[in-house]
Design a protein around this nucleic acid. Structure first.
Lengths: 91, 91
DNA sequence: TCCTTATTTAGATATTTGTCTAACTATCTA
DNA sequence: TAGATAGTTAGACAAATATCTAAATAAGGA
């Protein structure tokens, strides 16, 4: 897990919206693109960014590529944040 | 709390290091700058970014400006993440 | 009031990012 | 094998970002 890549990926509202869509169900690249007022290549690029950060996984199924969430990375980030907010163990 | 500003602020390793320093104790801008191989104006700019995201607070004390963590924003972000990772309530 | 210390603001520059159009690759079906 | 559909890659470009040096502001002390 590379924190910089993860936070950069989460810093874009379109990418956060993609994550929120994938929270509900796995979706193909095309289904995701339909939800946005943006070209398919742009969405494809955002998916690439999310994938590089390991926030989403993809699997080809025939003509389609199905994207899904990878929640383990979120948990790593939450650990980091909990450590920051923890009043105790300030060291 | 503006998620985009918060994640952008967290996306830089220098800024995350500043946060980790402030976790241990409040520090002046100069003390923070000493810890990095970077000019004071650059650090000042990073502190500005953290402040805009409401991740840190500042207070002038004579010649010094003392920076401190604001953990409430971290908690908001953790809420968002927990909601994403939650298996239940997929809606 | 003048000098020193602490910090920020301004302006410049190289790099990164988000978006687009055009072209390419992969798969299915007739 | 040809055409249609799904998706990505390549290349261009404007906007945003991280960094620097130089200059400005703020506060304290002689």
């Amino acid at each position: 897990m590379t924190a910089t890549l993860v936070f950069k990926a989460l810093a874009d509202p379109t990418r956060r919206s993609i994550i929120e869509l994938l929270k509900k169900r796995d979706m193909t690249a095309g289904e995701i693109a339909e939800q946005f007022n943006m070209t398919k290549p742009s969405i494809s690029h955002h998916l690439q960014t999310l994938q590089t950060a390991e926030l989403v996984l993809s699997e080809r199924n025939g003509q389609h590529i199905i994207y899904s969430l990878n929640t383990t990375v979120f948990q790593d980030i939450m650990m980091w944040m909990m450590n920051i907010t923890g009043k105790e163990n300030k060291e």
